[in-house]
Every structure is written in structure tokens, then in C-alpha cells.
């Protein structure tokens, strides 16, 4: 097991290098630092000195890959690639283009993101599984037929609609909770409720439909027929036998999502003004802060790979018949 995990982590390194090279070439080769400086300082009426200063302040004035001026190891380390891209491997994110410490910001903003994402994830899972069980219980009846259609309708509604509609209805018309904002401690609760509810509702359509197919696949298996032949009631069959077995695909699919809870939800956080990583990313994109976008790309890929490894491990934990190789 340990050997497998180590091998998987080693396998992740070339992928992260690939991601790094890709972002590096997107941000620095296709787009020279001069262009970035011009973009930030305004396109017209910008003096070469101002551009030079901007680059020096942020460390973009170095050569891209190979520094001829400094000899020895400095030739490779005193470059943009080493300073800005290679450092990410030890999670040194450096400073944003606006001058703030990205690593510190990420640590601070992780918690509000988790406060929204974790409840949304857990409640969403419970709600969708319940609905899917209900639909599966009434399979091949009108409840099932219209349930699936309702799911398709809910899937077809834009996520933005749920957010805008929910904010309008709950906060503006009914005045139940504040429209947006965030607080620390227990008083954060009133800011968390609405985003969580909206996040859960937005996921019901696709989730229910997907879990329904899993349940239906399980229901058509032989052990279910045996259980029914034993004379067990449909409810017992569904909750005791089918649910337990269906948990295997459900759990393994969920495990891969867990690392992403840190990243937060882009839309919900920015609409509700929650100072999490999702709104951090959106703000960075809108302010064109390339340093933050680069760091988030790297962080996102790390989390994705962690998710992949966790999925593989969870496969073996819930189903010992699968051997890791």
C-alpha cells in the first residue's frame, strides 16, 4: 500500500511539471512581462521607465530561463522560471502583482471557503441520495418518469439563476438573511445558510439523476432478486441491501471531490461576498493579477492529483477485491 502511494506521488511530479511549463509559457512566453506591465499601467501614455520599475518591483525583469550575467547556479536560479514557477513546488507562492503575500492570503481565505463548501457537500449528498432512492423506489412509474423530467428541468436552469433568484426572494423580498457578507464565529451562520441552500438546490438535478442510474444498476443485480425471493419487503431490500452496495460507487466518486472543497465555489462566493478562495480567484481574474491566477492553477492541479490518488485508495478500501498495481 505504502509503496503504491509513493509511486503515485512520484507519478504526479511529471504532471505538475507539465502544468507548470504550460502556465509558464502561457504567462511569460506568449505574453511578455512588458505586455503585462503595459496592461496594468494602462495601455497608452506609459513611459518605458514606468514599465521597467513595475517589472523590477515584481521581479519580472530577469531573463526567462537562463541568466547569462550571473555565473554558476545563479544562471538557472536567478530567472523568472525559477523564481516564479519552480518555487511553487515547495508551495512558495510569492507576492501577488498588487504586493500581497499569496500564501498568507490562501491560508486566511481557506476557512470561509470550507465553511460554505463542506456543509453544501454533505447536505447536498444526503438530499440527492434521498431523492434518488425515492425515485428508484418508484421506478418505472409516473413518479419516476416525472421525477427524471424534473431533474432535467432543474439541470437546465443556469446556476446563476438559482443564485440571483434566491438572493432576490430570500434576502430582498422576505428579508430573512442578509444579501451578502461574512463574519467570524457563530454570527457567520446567517451568512452561510443561504449560499448553502442555493448550492444544494443547484446540485439536486444532476446529482439525483446520476445516483438514480447507480441505484437502478444495483437493483437489477442478482443479490437483489435473491433478497426479494427471500420475502424481504421492498423497503428493506432498498435500504439495507441496495444502499450499502451502491455506496461503493457513490463514495469513490465523492472522494475525488473532497480536495476541491478547499478551492471553494467561484460563483457562490463572489455573489455572496464571502472572502474565500473562490472569490479570491475571481477577483484575481478580474483584476488581471497573473501571479494569483498562476498560484491557483498550480494549487488546483495539486488538489486534482490528490483527489485521483484518494480515489484509487478508496477503491481498495471499500472493495478489497481490487488490487493496487
Amino acid at each position: 500500500m505504502l509503496a503504491y502511494i509513493i509511486r503515485r506521488i512520484l507519478y504526479a511530479i511529471p504532471i505538475l511539471i507539465g502544468v507548470n511549463i504550460l502556465t509558464f509559457s502561457l504567462f511569460f512566453v506568449v505574453n511578455s512581462p512588458d505586455n503585462m506591465a503595459r496592461m496594468h499601467l494602462g495601455m497608452k501614455r506609459v513611459t518605458p521607465e514606468a514599465i521597467e520599475n513595475w517589472k523590477i518591483e515584481r521581479g519580472y525583469d530577469k531573463p526567462l530561463l537562463y541568466n547569462e550575467e550571473t555565473g554558476g547556479a545563479g544562471a538557472l536560479t536567478d530567472t523568472i522560471f525559477f523564481e516564479k514557477s519552480a518555487r511553487l513546488f515547495v508551495f512558495e507562492f510569492g507576492r501577488s502583482d498588487a504586493g500581497r503575500d499569496i500564501g498568507y492570503d490562501i491560508q486566511q481565505r481557506m476557512w470561509p471557503s470550507l465553511a460554505i463548501a463542506v456543509p453544501t457537500f454533505i447536505i447536498g449528498l444526503l438530499v440527492t441520495i434521498t431523492f434518488a432512492m425515492l425515485v428508484a423506489f418508484f421506478r418505472a412509474t409516473y413518479v419516476d418518469y416525472w421525477g427524471v423530467i424534473l431533474c432535467v428541468v432543474m439541470m437546465s436552469i443556469s446556476g446563476l439563476f438559482y443564485i440571483i433568484g434566491g438572493q432576490y426572494l430570500i434576502s430582498k423580498v422576505l428579508h430573512l438573511v442578509p444579501i451578502s457578507g461574512y463574519d467570524t464565529g457563530v454570527s457567520a451562520l446567517k451568512f452561510i445558510i443561504l449560499p448553502v441552500i442555493i448550492g444544494v438546490i443547484g446540485g439536486i438535478g444532476a446529482g439525483t439523476r446520476w445516483y438514480r442510474t447507480i441505484f437502478l444498476e444495483e437493483v437489477s443485480k442478482d443479490y437483489v432478486r435473491t433478497a426479494r425471493a427471500k420475502g424481504l419487503s421492498e423497503l428493506v431490500v432498498l435500504f439495507k441491501h441496495v444502499l450499502k452496495n451502491a455506496m461503493i460507487p457513490i463514495l469513490t466518486a465523492c472522494v475525488s471531490q473532497i480536495p476541491f472543497l478547499f478551492m471553494g465555489s467561484l460563483l457562490i462566493e463572489s455573489f455572496f461576498g464571502i472572502p474565500g478562495l473562490g472569490s479570491y480567484t475571481i477577483d484575481a481574474i478580474q483584476r488581471q493579477d497573473f501571479a494569483i491566477v498562476r498560484s491557483m492553477v498550480f494549487l488546483g492541479s495539486v488538489l486534482y492529483i490528490v483527489g485521483l490518488i484518494m480515489t484509487d485508495i478508496s477503491y481498495t478500501l471499500v472493495n478489497p477485491r481490487i488490487r493496487l498495481s
Binding site: L22, L26, R294, V297
Partner: peptide, 29 residues
């Protein structure tokens, strides 16, 4: 496999954002 794992490991929105920002600079210059 290496190519598609690398590409899919980058969060979609971020890759799109990065690429569009790059294009924006290109168009403006």
C-alpha cells in the same frame, strides 16, 4: 495519458481565464 491527465488537472475555469487574459493582452497590443 500524460497529456490528458496534465490538461484535466488544471481547473477548467482557471485555464480558460488564463488563456483569455493572454488573448486580451495580445489583441490589445
Amino acid at each position: 495519458q500524460y497529456i490528458y491527465t496534465t490538461l484535466s488537472s488544471i481547473p477548467g475555469v482557471l485555464l480558460i481565464a488564463a488563456a483569455v487574459l493572454v488573448l486580451q493582452v495580445y489583441v490589445e497590443t
